[in-house]
Design a binder for these strands. Structure first.
Length: 268
DNA sequence: CGGCGAATAT
DNA sequence: AATATTCGCC
């Protein structure tokens, strides 16, 4: 299950929520996004864990309402002692609540039910906070549940894929500290290669966005993404064709001229 | 309705 | 310039 190129695989996320169902759903979605997930059903325990194992988490997502500790309290503690971006989450979208989250230092506020699209880009918060994110630490994701037993080990087979050690910090990523920009698809040569393969596999006439997208099997890549790319690539292909045809015609004309059977041409 | 391609926006 | 979004049309 691949995400678009240059996606920071392996971000270590701690999810805190007293509702086990939410926890599970969140875990699944985050996992789909290729994050490493640690789930915790009680805030005090989460806090202990975060403190004990500093530098083993990159990001915290915490529910607001929890029996043992208010999510805002957890947010406060983390802000005080640890240097981690925290995302607050609740079913209640009251502006006062959201405001409270932000003023207490949350870097984002997610409304339940959380959609996976909202999770895909949360790594940008980590980049913002730390300046960079090394997502090449290792290539296996380990999930833990709150009592520290190993739940699942997922080994990824990335074949020969090579990646840069860090993502670069573009101006676009630094500006606007509050709302996350959608991660734009980058048509790297790798990705473009897959695109071309798909098109060839389909044949020119059947190469429509949906089919191309399905053949490429890149997670997170939408039909629109492909359509947009197709539009420009198709355009340049047509240009190439025109140029080729023009060159061929030119060649023919010159040939005829040389044989003296061409049209009378002006030589100036 | 979904999906396409073209036009338009960012 | 590259990618996303919108729009009108099958």
């Amino acid at each position: 299950m691949a995400v678009s190129e240059d996606f920071p695989v392996g971000l270590r996320v701690m999810v805190v929520d007293d509702d086990p169902v939410c926890l599970l759903i969140l875990q699944r979605m985050l996992h789909q996004c290729r994050y490493r997930v640690t789930t915790c059903s009680c805030a005090t325990q989460a806090y202990t864990m975060l403190r004990e194992r500093q530098d083993t988490f990159d990001l915290v997502i915490s529910d607001v309402y929890m029996p043992d500790m208010d999510g805002f309290r957890l947010l406060e503690l983390i802000g005080l002692e640890l240097d981690l971006p925290v995302i607050m989450m609740s079913a209640n979208g009251e502006t006062s609540l959201v405001m409270k989250g932000i003023t207490h230092g949350a870097c984002d506020y997610l409304l339940k039910p959380v959609r996976i699209e909202e999770l895909r880009n949360i790594w940008q918060h980590v980049v913002r906070k730390k300046g960079t994110f090394d997502f090449n630490r290792d290539n296996c994701s380990i999930d833990w549940d709150s009592n520290k037993t190993l739940v699942e080990v997922q080994s990824e087979d990335h074949g020969s894929r090579k990646r840069k050690g860090n993502i670069e910090l573009s101006d676009a990523m630094i500006e606007d500290a509050n709302s996350l920009k959608k991660a734009r698809v980058v048509w790297s040569s790798e990705l473009h290669k897959k695109f071309v393969n798909a098109v060839n596999q389909l044949g020119i006439d059947k190469a429509v966005p949906k089919s191309i997208m399905e053949i490429m099997r890149i997670q997170g890549l939408t039909r629109e993404n492909v359509a947009s790319h197709l539009q420009v690539v198709d355009g340049s292909w047509k240009c190439e064709d025109k140029r080729r045809i023009r060159d061929e015609q030119m060649h023919l004309i010159m040939q005829r001229e040389h044989e003296g059977i061409g049209f009378p041409t002006t030589h100036c």
